[in-house]
Simulated assay, not measured.
Amino acid sequence: MAGCYYVTALSARGLESRPSNTVCNQACPQFALPNVFTPNGDGKNDLFAPLRCPAFVEQVEFIVYNRWGAKVYQSTGASLAWDGRSSSGAELPSGLYYYQASVHFGLLERNAPPLVVKGWVQILRETVSQQ
C-alpha cells in the first residue's frame, strides 16, 4: 500500500521510543487492457477485463462507444469486467468498439488525476458448438 511509515519500540513499562526515520512508499499502478474478447458463453475470454492483476485501483469509470460515436455502455466501480452488453443489457453485435477508462489509483497524492486509457476492442461472438 502507498503510505509513509515509521517504527517505534515499546518497553515492558509502556515507554515508547522515538520514531525511526519515516519511509514513504509510492504505489506502483498498472492497468492494461486487451483488444479482443469473445463473450460467447464458453467460459473463456467472456469478459473484457484488465490484463494481469491491476494494482492499487480504487475506481474505474468506463465508457464504450460504437463505431459511429454513440455511447453504448457506461459503468463506474472498483473493478472492470464488461460482458459485451449495452447499458440496457442488450448483447452488442460483433464488431469494433472504442473505449475510455479513467482509472483512479490509491496513491500518496490523494487528489492525483486519474490515468486515462483510450483504445479499441473487437467483440467476436462465435457460436459455441455442442459436442
Rank of each mutant, 00 (worst) to 15 (best):
A2D: 06
G3T: 00
C4A: 12
V7G: 01
V7I: 12
T8H: 11
A9G: 13
A9W: 06
A12F: 14
R13V: 08
R13N: 10
R13F: 10
L15D: 15
E16C: 08
N21Q: 11
T22L: 05
C24T: 10
N25K: 02
Q26L: 08
Q26P: 03
A27C: 06
P29R: 04
Q30A: 12
F31R: 05
L33P: 02
P34W: 09
N35H: 14
V36E: 03
V36W: 02
P39Q: 06
G41Q: 05
D42Q: 02
G43K: 01
D46Q: 01
F48I: 09
P50G: 07
L51R: 11
R52D: 15
A55K: 12
F56K: 01
F56E: 00
Q59M: 07
E61P: 00
E61W: 07
F62T: 06
Y65V: 04
R67F: 13
R67E: 11
R67K: 15
A70I: 04
S75M: 09
L80H: 07
A81Y: 12
W82E: 08
D83S: 12
G84I: 07
G84E: 07
G84T: 10
S86H: 05
S88V: 04
A90C: 06
S94L: 03
L96M: 14
Y97Q: 06
Y99C: 08
Q100I: 12
Q100N: 09
A101C: 13
H104N: 11
E109F: 05
E109Q: 14
R110S: 15
R110F: 08
R110D: 11
P113R: 11
L115M: 15
V117D: 08
V117C: 09
G119M: 11
G119D: 12
I123K: 01
I123W: 02
L124T: 08
R125W: 06
V128D: 07
S129Q: 14
S129H: 14
Q130E: 13
